[in-house]
Amino acid sequence: MCDTCGCNVTHSNAHLVTDKGKLARTEDGRQAITVLQNLLTENDRQAVHNRQHFDKQSILAINLMSSPGAGKTALLEATIDGLADEFSIAVIEGDLETENDAQRIRDKGVPALQISTGSACHLDAHMVHDALHHLDLNGVDIVFIENVGNLVCPASFDLGQHRNITLLSVTEGDDKPAKYPVMFRAADLILLTKSDLLEVIDDFDPQQAEHYVRQLASEAPVLQLAARRKIDIDSWLDWLRDEVMAQRERRINNLSLRPNIQPEGAALHSADKYHHDDHDHHHQHTHSHRHSPS
């Protein structure tokens, strides 16, 4: 099957494809094939390609996600101020409209490419690939991809990054991880931003936010900082330094890294376990209407 459809066979799903990828005929003579292929296979393939770009040049790629206004660009500005002497940084900015964020980064002397997504609510691997070809990555140590401000859609698209970071500003409410579990599960690191406002905000409890993160079975570190006033940013900068070193090590050992949570492995594993071709499902079906040709 994979020779014809080109789907991405990995060590975690190969057994499924070989065990179940056989052709079968139904009673009414129609042909049915078992596919078991991630819906975003094409995006994922492009993401693998992007990751190879990064790995080849020993670049650490970081995907920043949050709701709009949580302080992703302010975090980048503070990070550039803190690390510009140590590392070469480049930034890909995703927004629906304007060059404003890219301009803020360029004002810091760092190359930035703005992707204007129009109405698209997330970046995908193809957009990032196009952007990479417009950025000079020579000698770059870290590429930050600032995703579109949105706590929903960006979590579903692998861009080729090594790490996902989710920002939660203290003005948003400490129960955001419970409300947006897909996003917060995807994080390798969670930053509670604008922490200098905690003294005037009485309904955000950082421990409660962390509690909700743990309820998602996440072991991601949770750090607090206030980027604009550069309060408590040292732990974040240290985390980044460690990650850059780890990426260089991986390069030497010819290894790569995907973000902590990847749906594919669990998806195909559970597909093996819970899907039965005899349609004796113990889970719920929903059927769409058959629609007439337009």
Binding site: N38, L39, L216
Partner: peptide, 26 residues
């Protein structure tokens, strides 16, 4: 939003089903 073990209550769990987005059959 509560992916802890229903048996012992620990949060060190691995998701084995629930994040699928798969074309399973045609």
């Amino acid at each position: 939003n509560r992916l802890i073990c229903a048996v012992c209550g620990d949060y060190h769990t691995k998701l084995i089903s629930g994040d699928e987005m798969v074309l399973s059959k045609l």
